[in-house]
């Protein structure tokens, strides 16, 4: 994680926003997103699979899970991801696929259970959330190769910092294997098509 020291003087503040914009531009990866139906499913570590299963405690054992990562203080990217997630869960249900949606916070310091509960409710009642902390969160992120970068987060600023993160999302089968990797922002229609056109995947 990268931290940029807070600059407090009024003279410096004048230049902070343009400079941070330069930093954000430089930090962004240029990679295009792609939807990948895995030839070889990736089995999740038991710890990660167990954590996902806890989200929908009374779940159908044939339930597939859609997993996206983000943070509730995100004003535009994560809401778009969650809207897609909610849309996909509804699309799956329409195709009679048992499907649950899970939002995993990468920012548990600000995203309390109360905030998360209220946040995801705005996107429908069919979504759940997962809040992990410390080493457990780091292991969970590593299981999905999630990348994060925190800016201006420090002891003097634990509220108004910025987080960049990868927007890769995952479709997990009932046995706990990653079967499809896609971008939560740009590839939702690919997954909707998958529900309609690749029924054999969900019967396997």
């Amino acid at each position: 994680m990268k931290y940029i020291s807070a600059i407090r003087s009024g003279t410096y503040r004048k230049y902070v926003n343009p400079m941070l914009a330069i930093l954000f531009l430089a930090a962004s990866a240029g990679s295009e997103a792609a939807t990948v139906l895995l030839r070889r499913p990736i089995p999740l570590l038991p710890e990660a699979a167990a954590r996902l299963n806890q989200v929908h405690a009374d779940r159908d054992l044939r339930m597939w899970q859609l997993v996206v990562f983000g943070f509730a203080h995100c004003k535009d990217v994560c809401p778009a991801s969650l809207a897609n997630l909610s849309m996909l869960v509804k699309a799956g249900v329409a195709e009679r696929i048992s499907l649950g949606g899970i939002f995993v916070t990468i920012d548990p310091d600000r995203d309390t259970d109360a905030i998360l509960s209220q946040y995801i409710r705005a996107f429908g009642t069919d979504l759940g959330y997962l809040r992990l902390e410390g080493g457990e969160l780091e292991r969970f992120k590593a299981a999905f190769s999630v990348e994060t970068a925190f800016y201006t987060k420090n002891a003097g600023n634990m509220l108004n910092y910025q987080v960049d993160h990868s927007t890769t999302a995952f479709l997990i089968d009932p046995a706990g294997n990653i079967r499809v990797i896609f971008d939560a922002l740009t590839d939702a229609t690919d997954i909707e098509d998958l529900f309609r056109k690749n029924r054999t995947l969900f019967e396997s």
């Binding site: 962004s28 990679s31 997103a33 535009d76 990217v77 190769s145 910025q162 927007t167």
Partner: peptide, 12 residues
């Protein structure tokens, strides 16, 4: 999997 990751910055 990292090859597929796209980093997203709201500022960007």
């Amino acid at each position: 999997v990292t090859l597929l990751n796209k980093l997203c910055t709201p500022q960007r």
